[in-house]
């Protein structure tokens, strides 16, 4: 077989045959999904799975189509998306900033140490009912839950990152006559980037959990509300639609964070 040549653009990944590795992986990923759906459908046909307990692939597709057509899915997606993104951005920005700034005050770091341990250990979602009480039933409370949870994770990671800076680098800056603020700007902030990026990755999941749990507790729209409400009605096809939509949202956010990570890596 003749090898295809691409003179206009270099290949992005080494090719070992007619299909590139990335394409091959994508095909396998789709195959895994198809196998799961097929097993699900076969289970229903032979009676191992009950449609009213597990839903049906066809029913899920129909529910998807109906909810896209009437605009309700997009509305729920948009509401949850806003809660997640706003909460994620606020929580990560404020948390990372506060965690890094703590480097400037070892005294405050010592004072806050037991609180950091307590916050790290507590299941953060346990704060959700309190936040609903403080911020009301609207979208603000879900944003607040996502913000507070992601704040804690970003804060702890950024603080940890700042503490992991090589002490010899700090001494070097001191010997150059740098002020604590110059050391902070020049060494601590860029040196903590890998920790901050890992917090971003963790926080994609935490922001989603925050918003969805908030919607479970009290809401009138959003994917969490849709899943919870459909579950109450035993409309399992709609529950699956909600879950798959949340997965799509998670994948989108992950892709954005991965892009940001690559950019920061290049800068780093």
């Amino acid at each position: 077989m003749a090898m295809a040549t691409h003179s206009s653009a270099p290949a992005r990944a080494p090719r070992r045959g007619p299909l590139g590795e990335t394409t091959k992986i994508r095909l396998y990923q789709i195959a895994v999904l198809l196998v799961i759906i097929a097993l699900w459908q076969v289970g229903l046909w032979i009676g191992w799975l009950k449609p009213y307990v597990y839903g049906t692939p066809l029913g899920v597709l129909q529910s998807f189509a109906t909810q896209i057509a009437d605009g309700s899915l997009l509305r729920h997606f948009w509401v949850t998306g806003q809660e997640v993104v706003i909460g994620f951005v606020l929580g990560c920005a404020l948390g990372s900033g506060a965690g890094l700034l703590l480097w400037l005050s070892p005294l405050w770091a010592k004072i806050l140490h037991p609180y950091m341990i307590a916050l790290n250990g507590v299941p953060k979602i346990a704060l959700a009912p309190l936040i609903i009480v403080w911020f009301g039933l609207g979208m603000e409370s879900k944003i607040a839950i996502a913000t507070i949870i992601t704040f804690i994770v970003a804060f702890l990671q950024a603080y940890k990152g700042s503490q992991e800076i090589d002490p010899d680098l700090i001494r070097l800056m001191k010997s150059l006559g740098a002020s604590p603020w110059q050391t902070f700007r020049t060494i601590v902030v860029p040196g903590s980037v890998p920790w901050i990026v890992s917090a971003l990755r963790l926080n994609v999941g935490f922001a989603l959990i925050g918003a969805v749990v908030g919607e479970y507790i009290s809401a009138e729209e959003g994917l969490g509300y849709m899943v919870y409400y459909s579950g109450q009605l035993y409309d399992l096809n709609s529950v699956w639609v909600g879950i798959f939509s949340l997965m799509i949202m998670a994948l989108l956010l992950e892709a954005i964070v991965a892009r940001l990570e690559r950019y920061l890596d290049m800068e780093h």
């Binding site: 090589d166 010899d168 680098l169 070097l172 020049t186 860029p190 040196g191 980037v193």
Partner: peptide
């Protein structure tokens, strides 16, 4: 100047 070069990798 130390054994470690302490160059900033970024």
């Amino acid at each position: 100047m130390l054994q470690k070069d302490l160059l900033l990798p970024w």
